[in-house]
C-alpha cells in the first residue's frame, strides 16, 4: 500500500456506494477520496474488499457520521474500537468527525444535531475530542455542522466555539464552507466574520456541498450542486487560508460520477486561480 500521511492539497471526491464499481473499473484520475467510516465497520465482505482496492490506488480520508462527539451519553466504546480497527486497516490520510451530537439516553437519532454553544458544551466536547484522539493516537479533524435552530441559552458565538475546540484540544478543523453559509443565512450572521475568527493553521480540509432552499430555512441536504454564493465564499476562504484539501460531498439524489468530477474541477480551478494571484 502506498502511504499518504497527509491529504494532497487539491480537490477530492466523496465516494458513495453507487459509484464504487465504476471507480474500481475505470480508475478515474481523482486526487483523493473520502468515505463515511461507518460504511466500512463490517467484519468483512465485499464493501471492505472494495475499499482496500481503492485505498491501494488513492489517498483516502475517513469521515465519521456517528461518533456523537457532543452527546452526554458515554462515548460508544464499540463504535470507537471499530474506527480504530478501520484506521489500522486502511491507514487513512485523515480521520474526521462532526462537532455535533446524535443520541441521548441510549437512543440514537443518527443525524448531526446541533450543540448549544455554552461553556459546559465546550468543556464536554473538548474532553471527548481528546478521548478520541488519545484512542486513535492521531489528530482528529472536527467539522462544523449546519443547524436549523439556535439555543436561546447559547453564550458563545459558533465561530468562537469552533475555534476554541481546535485551540484547546489540538485537533484540526474540517471547515465546511457550505455549512457556514447555511448557518449564516439561517441565523443571520456574517459568514466572512466566521471565517476570520477561525485559526487558519488548524484548517486541514474543506468541505463543499449543495443545500435545499425550498423550505422555511436552508437545509444541508448534500443533494444539489454547490451554490454560486458558496463558491464565492469558498474563494474568499481560500484567499484567506491558502489552498486546502477540498472535498465535494453529494449524499442524496446522487448524480453521475462525472458531475462530481466537474464540481471538483471547479474547486481545483479556484485554488489555482488563488495561487496565480499569490504568485
Amino acid at each position: 500500500m502506498n502511504t499518504h500521511l497527509r491529504l494532497p492539497v487539491v480537490a477530492g471526491i466523496g465516494l458513495r456506494a453507487p459509484h464504487i464499481a465504476q471507480v474500481l473499473a475505470e480508475r478515474p484520475p481523482v486526487a483523493w477520496f473520502e468515505v463515511h467510516s461507518e460504511n466500512y465497520y463490517a467484519d468483512g465482505g465485499p464493501a471492505l474488499a472494495a475499499l482496500d482496492r481503492i485505498r491501494a490506488d488513492y489517498p483516502l480520508s475517513l469521515h465519521g457520521v456517528g461518533m456523537s462527539l457532543g452527546s452526554t451519553d458515554p462515548l460508544d466504546a464499540t463504535h470507537l474500537s471499530k474506527l480504530e480497527r478501520l484506521v489500522a486497516r486502511v491507514e487513512p490520510a485523515a480521520v474526521s468527525e462532526h462537532l455535533c451530537w446524535s443520541g441521548i439516553g441510549g437512543r440514537h437519532l443518527n443525524d448531526l444535531l446541533p450543540l448549544p454553544y455554552t461553556e459546559e458544551a465546550l468543556d464536554h466536547v473538548c474532553s471527548r475530542v481528546t478521548q478520541v484522539q488519545d484512542a486513535l493516537r492521531r489528530e482528529l479533524l472536527v467539522e462544523n455542522v449546519s443547524s436549523y435552530l439556535a439555543f436561546a441559552d447559547a453564550t458563545i458565538p459558533e465561530w468562537e466555539f469552533v475555534a476554541a475546540v481546535a485551540t484547546r484540544t489540538g485537533c484540526k478543523l474540517l471547515c465546511d464552507v457550505n455549512n457556514i453559509y447555511v448557518n449564516a443565512v439561517n441565523h443571520g450572521f456574517d459568514a466572512d466574520a466566521y471565517l476570520a475568527a477561525l485559526p487558519g493553521a488548524a484548517i486541514a480540509e474543506v468541505h463543499l456541498a449543495g443545500f435545499d432552499a425550498s423550505g422555511p430555512c436552508l437545509v444541508d441536504t448534500h443533494g444539489a450542486p454547490v451554490a454560486p454564493d458558496v463558491w464565492a465564499l469558498y474563494a474568499r476562504a481560500i484567499a484567506r487560508f491558502g489552498p486546502r484539501p477540498t472535498l465535494i460531498e453529494w449524499d442524496t439524489d446522487i448524480p453521475a460520477f462525472a458531475v462530481l468530477e466537474r464540481e471538483a474541477a471547479t474547486a481545483q480551478s479556484i485554488m489555482e486561480t488563488r495561487d496565480a494571484i499569490a504568485a
Partner: peptide, 18 residues
Amino acid sequence: PGFSVVAPAKGAERIAIY
C-alpha cells in the same frame, strides 16, 4: 420544543426539519 430557542415562534417548524 420544551427548551428555549432563538426565534421561539419558529421552534416547532425547525424541529420538524430535523
